[in-house]
Each structure stands twice: as structure tokens, then as C-alpha cells.
Amino acid sequence: MASQGTKRSYEQMETDGERQNATEIRASVGKMIDGIGRFYIQMCTELKLSDYEGRLIQNSLTIERMVLSAFDERRNKYLEEHPSAGKDPKKTGGPIYKRVDRKWMRELVLYDKEEIRRIWRQANNGDDATAGLTHMMIWHSNLNDTTYQRTRALVRTGMDPRMCSLMQGSTLPRRSGAAGAAVKGVGTMVMELIRMIKRGINDRNFWRGENGRKTRSAYERMCNILKGKFQTAAQRAMMDQVRESRNPGNAEIEDLIFLARSALILRGSVAHKSCLPACVYGPAVASGYDFEKEGYSLVGIDPFKLLQNSQVYSLIRPNENPAHKSQLVWMACNSAAFEDLRVLSFIRGTKVSPRGKLSTRGVQIASNENMDAMESSTLELRSRYWAIRTRSGGNTNQQRASAGQISVQPAFSVQRNLPFDKPTIMAAFTGNTEGRTSDMRAEIIRMMEGAKPEEMSFQGRGVFELSDERAANPIVPSFDMSNEGSYFFGDNAEEYDN
């Protein structure tokens, strides 16, 4: 993207840094990872977990959730003011799984939030270390993106479920800051804005008074975040219109849905970061690795190297396929839920299948599930090659597409044709070009129609051997075009429920 120079890199967003050079960025990201790792080690000690239990991804998720809940100030305040039966607002906890007599047992633990905050700050040299908290939120978000298709949420806001490739980060909490905003897809931002506008339509006082002023500035800020994701002048001009509207209503909703559809071809720039579970960072720190000293990046080879040398386990339900569970977590670790499966298959070195073909449910185990038949197995999170994460949407291309997802959002900077089903997408653009945004709409449609099938995206960008740390010898991959490109292809993934 041309304006790259004016933006802070995501590592800076990730670490609240002012302008830093590459070495400083690597050190501050490393410091953040160190903090998460030290916190995780301490929690495993508190909970008396064995090494194996500490490497269980379900335990990692519970521990991450506990610290996120302990620092969720708004919710904590709300819980104190609106006490609900049987919930102690000062405590947080969740299921911890232990191996007892050759069987997995679930144990519900409860801790004072104050105590968890103390352990977290102690692991982070006394700081609140917001960057580390956001990092864990993005890992949870990436896992949700890989596990669930947001059909219901899309339909509720009037969008087409086939636009799911635009929904990265749709389950990120509001408090995820600049680093969170960077990884949100165009569809996620559109959905947040539509929800806001709908509230304004239904509630006369939404934009009024002292609160209304705050609401208005939040609305304009979200519009600017979305505008910054678009790469064409016409899309940005249309966002200006939406932002400046005196009284946002149905016309703005129409414009936003139009823009979301246009992003299936004229893709937005959305950041991709490899955020790993805390149970990967903990053992690495415990083994003596100093992330701050060595430096770390979320968008280069580092996460690949770390996963190459990590042992992570997962509980497996009786009829689940461990290899499929591994694929789910591998995609989440690489922030690749909406990437082209052919690119992923090449990088991973084994075939990556669409969601609907995987015999696996989510990673988390519900409290009512029976533990008797639970097994555990090693997650295979290694890769054959590594590639640089991208934040450009890439230019655009036609490809055989599917009944489910009709476009992709690249996660890796790797040369390819970008699949999208042009006739299906263009069919949504018939007729409606009147109104105050008509010239911009016409211009956007013209650009979409001009998108050429034979153009290559990320020209000359390749993948790298894991021994090639400096990215000196790019390998331009070859793809098996007979395979499906979309992950949520004609899909039956479970729906995400809060």
C-alpha cells in the first residue's frame, strides 16, 4: 500500500510504541512475548500442572481467558453494579484439565481477579502490559475465525453469508486497541457500523446529549479505520460520505453494504499476525530463551520457528480426527482463516481442507461434555516452508469459486491468482447506482469489472525454506488448481455463540 510509510507498523501498534527502528520493534515485541511466557509459567505453578498438562491447549485457553477477564475493567465495573446470582464479580476462573488415573478430569478453578492481575503485572515488570493482553485477544479471535462461520451475524446486519472472507476479527472485544483495529476485516468494521446506525434509528437519543457526542466521535473513528483499509480513492470518498452524514440511517447502511461487497474484489488491507497460545510461549521462556534479547516478529519467520520446536497437546472428542484438529489450530496460529487453501497447503506441506470436510468441533470443551471418553493427542503445528504475512489485500483475480465463501483475504505475501467468483459478486451490483453516491458507485463498479483474471497478485513473492531466515531465496510455489480455494466452501461450520 502506498501510504505504508505514514502508518505505524503493526509491531508498533502491538507494543504501543512511538516510531521505533526494526531492532527496537523486535525487542519490544519480544518483551511482550516474554511477559506472556513468564505469566503462563507462574500460572502453571499456581495450578500445580504437570509439564504435559501445561502444554494442553484447553488449559492455555482457560488461563488466557482468566487474565483477560481480570483486566476487563468495563465488564468488571458492570458486574459490580449489576450483581447477578451466583456470579462473584471479583473472581474469575474456568475449567482446568488434569490427568488422573490414566483419565482426563475437569476441575473448575476460581481465583481472585486481583490475584491474577498481581501475577500478570509481576510477570511483566510491574506494568499492565496491555500489548500482551491484546495479543491474547487476537489469538482467540484468530481461533474463532478458523472455527466458526459468522453466517447468522452477517444475515442479521443485512449482509450476504458468502462475504465471510471479510469477517476477520469479528469476535475481537471493543477494547483491543490499535492492534485489534489493524486485524479487523472490512466486513467486521461494516458490521460494527451498521449495528451502531441501527441503534440510532431505533433509539432517538442515541446521537443526542453528552453521551451522543461520545457516540458520534466513536462512529467517526470507526469510519476512519474502515476508510484506511480501502485502497481505492472511490471507496475512500464513499467512506467520507458515510462519516460526514448528519443523521446516519438506511442510506448509510446501503452504502456500507455496497462497500463491503466491493471489497470482495477491490480488497481492503487487513493486517495478519501470528499470535500463538500462551502454552507455546511459556515452555520456550522456561527453556531459557530470551525473546527480548533475541527479538521477535509476528509477521516473519519467528512464529514458524517457534511452532517448529513446540509440543502442544489437545483434548480430542471420541469421533474427532486429531489431524483435522491440528489443521484448525495451525490455521489459527498463522492467522489464515480466509487465505486461499492452495497457498496454505503449499506452505504447510500437507493438504489443507475446507472447514466442512474437517471432523472436528471447536477447541474448547463445553462444561456439560462427558470427560470419560476424552483422549488427548499432539497437535501437528509444523510447516514445510515459511512466508511473510501481508497486510495488503493483493490485486484481484477471477477463479472458480464456491457456493460458500466467494473470495479470499490473503494472509501471506505469496504470488498467486486470487480466487473470487466474479459473476456471483457482480450480480449483486445491478441497477442500484442512484442517489448521492452514484458517481462513486459507478466508478467502483467500473474498477471491479476491469479486474483481470490473468493478473498475478504479489508478483514474484515466494515462500522460503525454514533454514532461509533472511528470506534470501524465494520459492514461487505451484498450486494444484483442481483443489478448492475457499475454506468455508459450501460450508456447515458451527455458528459462533458468545
Rank of each mutant, 00 (worst) to 15 (best):
N144D: 06
R38Y: 05
R236G: 08
S217M: 13
N368D: 05
A260D: 11
Q308E: 01
R204Y: 10
R19M: 04
D112R: 11
Y296F: 12
G180Y: 05
A373Y: 06
N492M: 10
I201L: 15
P423E: 01
V190F: 02
N142L: 07
R391I: 04
V329G: 08
E380T: 02
S297G: 08
R243F: 12
S467F: 12
G209Q: 09
V67T: 06
A493Q: 13
T62H: 06
V186A: 04
A472L: 00
S269C: 14
G5D: 01
Y111I: 15
P83C: 13
S392N: 08
W386M: 06
G30Q: 15
E18N: 10
A27E: 04
A471M: 01
L49W: 09
I33D: 04
V29L: 05
Q415I: 00
S383Q: 14
L256I: 04
G37H: 03
E495G: 08
Y97L: 04
G169P: 02
D480L: 03
N498E: 00
N334M: 11
S170F: 10
I257S: 01
A260N: 03
Q415K: 13
Q308T: 09
G282L: 07
C164W: 01
L266S: 04
T378A: 15
N417M: 06
D112L: 11
R400G: 08
S9P: 00
T350A: 15
I57L: 15
S274M: 09
N370C: 10
K77D: 01
K325W: 11
K91N: 05
C333G: 14
S141E: 09
D72Q: 04
S413N: 11
M440G: 09
T171H: 04
W207C: 07
L358F: 10
K98C: 09
T430F: 00
F479S: 13
P477C: 02
G485T: 00
S359I: 12
F304C: 12
K90T: 15
T92D: 11
Y148W: 04
F346C: 14
Q308G: 13
E53H: 05
E14I: 03
A387D: 07
Y313M: 04
I57H: 02
G460I: 00
P89Q: 02
T130Q: 12
V29M: 08
G282D: 10
L266K: 14
K422R: 15
T92Q: 06
I57C: 03
E14W: 03
V414C: 15
V186G: 00
N125W: 05
V155M: 07
R446G: 10
I197W: 10
P83L: 02
Q12P: 00
A218Y: 06
K90S: 09
Q308K: 03
V183C: 07
F346S: 10
D16W: 02
F206R: 03
Q459W: 09
I444F: 10
A251F: 08
E292T: 13
Q4P: 00
S9M: 14
S345D: 13
A284K: 13
A332I: 04
D340N: 13
I445A: 15
G282Y: 11
L259W: 02
S274E: 07
D240S: 13
T433K: 04
Q235D: 07
K214F: 06
K113A: 01
E254Q: 14
G200M: 08
Y289I: 15
M163E: 01
